[in-house]
């Protein structure tokens, strides 16, 4: 069990800043996540999910990972795709009573059939990320926070060979660039299905936007 985040951050504020970071960037970022510091019952520092913004790959991305998944993508067979859909349907059932479902309500006939759409690798990686946390400097986000130095990993080979399960997992799901930028309150992680070179001004912007007093 986690204690309250330190300090408690407004999720609307996080969402606005994540969205601004992704939508305002010249590069095509697939998602942004803010990993927020907290401490567990034993006093260990934990980076846990603060909030995230999912944009998805570029619309003109021709790679299979952009398209709805088929058997050639990530060796995903039909059963695995059905499992992803089932998990999303179950999660939808879990959260919709509490948070409503305005998208379905506004569009007649939309219903829950839209939950049956193919779940792409990038979408799945983002959803799985919500269940993750990093204790005492583990993982790429934890390393960035503990060293207070941004980590910018470009290319499938570097992600695959990076000594971190999250980087390897990202690569397996089609991420080509993973960036973790530390702030005093946590870590901003950006991921893209493109190879994006290091960008000093983006790192500064992320650090500034996610430094809370």
């Amino acid at each position: 069990p986690l204690t309250a985040p330190l300090p408690s951050l407004n999720q609307d504020t996080l969402q606005q800043r994540l969205q601004a970071l992704v939508e305002g960037a010249a590069e095509s970022w697939t998602y942004a996540i803010f990993w927020q510091t907290s401490s567990d019952a034993e006093g260990s520092m934990v980076l846990g999910w603060g909030d995230g913004y999912y944009k998805g790959p570029r619309d003109d991305d021709p790679r299979p990972s952009k398209r709805p998944l088929d058997a050639n993508s990530h060796n995903l067979d039909g059963a695995d795709q059905e499992l992803r859909k089932k998990v999303l349907r179950d999660l939808h059932a879990l959260v919709s009573p509490e948070f409503g479902d305005s998208a379905a309500a506004e569009i007649p006939g939309a219903g829950d059939a839209t939950m049956d759409g193919e779940v792409t690798d990038a979408e799945w990686f983002y959803v799985v990320s919500m269940m993750q946390s990093f204790v005492n400097g583990s993982g790429v986000p934890g390393q960035a926070f503990f060293t207070a130095v941004p980590i910018w990993i470009i290319g499938a080979e570097r992600l695959q060979s990076y000594n971190c399960d999250r980087a390897r997992q990202a690569q397996q799901f089609g991420i080509q660039t993973m960036v973790c930028i530390p702030s005093p309150n946590g870590v901003v992680e950006l991921g893209s299905m493109d190879q994006i070179p290091q960008n000093w001004s983006l790192m500064q912007q992320a650090k500034t936007s996610f430094t809370f007093t």
Partner: peptide, 26 residues
């Protein structure tokens, strides 16, 4: 179904709603 901490439910709801919009508008 994985356990979803309360703080993450809002993120999940937002993601699922936007995903539904993307599918509908395709």
């Amino acid at each position: 179904v994985p356990r979803v901490p309360q703080a993450r439910k809002a993120s999940l709801a937002r993601f699922l709603e936007k995903r539904k919009e993307r599918i509908i508008t395709k």
